[in-house]
Simulated scan of single mutants.
Amino acid sequence: MAQRTPLSRERIVAAAMRVADDGGLAAVSMRNVAKALGAEAMSLYHHVSGKEELLDLLADAAFEEVPLVEIGAPWRAAMTSRADAMRAVLKAHPWALGLLESRSNPGPAVIRHHDRVLGLLRHDGFELALAAHAYSVLDAYIYGFVLTELSLPFTPEVGADAFAEGLELPADEFPHLAEMLERMVLGHGYDYGDEFGYGLDLVLDQLELRRAAQRG
């Protein structure tokens, strides 16, 4: 008989992530995670105190997938790379949108990530208050964009053209929206995801202005 691989916190968290990826955060329970591991639910309690700790560990595991920024790197390039990485993680694990900032017992990866981002901004000329504001607005933009991106009734694969055509907006009643659809969407290979970089640049441009102004 083949020997069963022993349970560990790492294996439990990995299984919980698979359960969440397949069924959303609501599917994560000690029973379902144990089932994914081919184990009894009670055996998980030797490694994890319960569902709340498991959710804390899940949040930490998601943050571990985002590369840490390096203090001393140019802030704008680092924040752009971090935004792209955060977006990729949130799209790969949609359940993380409602979890990453909601835990009252953040793990070491969560704390390290936050500390490193603030440290990079402070090192590259941001006063403390502006660094905190920058962190807040960047995460609000990233999380909000991904939430919209995942909720759209069309995808890059299916395309926005069919959706736009189905709206059948009368130009005399909705002239501005009809103009946008005609000049930017229909027949133009429109991909909402392309908006991410443009919007991010708008945020970063304003932060750069405020970073420069604080020196005056």
Rank of each mutant, 00 (worst) to 15 (best):
Y143A: 13
L138H: 09
Y135M: 11
L167I: 13
V146Q: 05
H133L: 15
V137G: 01
L147K: 14
E157M: 06
E127S: 12
Y135A: 07
G125D: 07
L138G: 07
F126R: 05
A164E: 08
A171S: 13
L167H: 08
F126D: 03
P153F: 02
E149S: 08
L147Y: 09
L147T: 14
V137E: 10
L167V: 11
T148D: 12
P153C: 00
D172W: 14
L147C: 08
A132I: 14
L130M: 02
A160N: 02
V146Y: 02
S136W: 06
A134W: 03
D172R: 14
L128Y: 14
E168I: 11
E157V: 08
F154A: 00
P156Y: 02
H123N: 13
H133N: 15
G166P: 06
S136I: 06
A132G: 11
L128F: 13
S136C: 11
L147Q: 15
A140M: 10
A160W: 00
F163S: 04
Y143D: 12
A160E: 01
Y135I: 04
L130D: 06
L167E: 12
G144Y: 07
L169Y: 06
E165F: 11
G144E: 02
F126E: 03
S151T: 02
Y135E: 09
V158C: 06
D161W: 02
L167Y: 07
P153A: 00
L167D: 08
L128D: 15
E168K: 15
A160K: 04
H133W: 13
E165V: 10
F163T: 05
A160D: 06
D172C: 08
D172I: 11
F145V: 01
G125K: 03
D161P: 01
P156Q: 00
L121A: 08
D124I: 06
P153E: 00
E149H: 05
G125N: 03
F154Y: 08
D161C: 05
P156C: 01
L130F: 04
F145D: 03
P153M: 03
F126M: 06
L169R: 04
E127R: 14
V137L: 09
G144D: 05
G166L: 10
F163K: 02
E127F: 10
H123L: 04
A129M: 12
A129Y: 12
I142A: 13
A140N: 10
A164D: 05
L169E: 08
P170S: 09
A140K: 13
A171G: 09
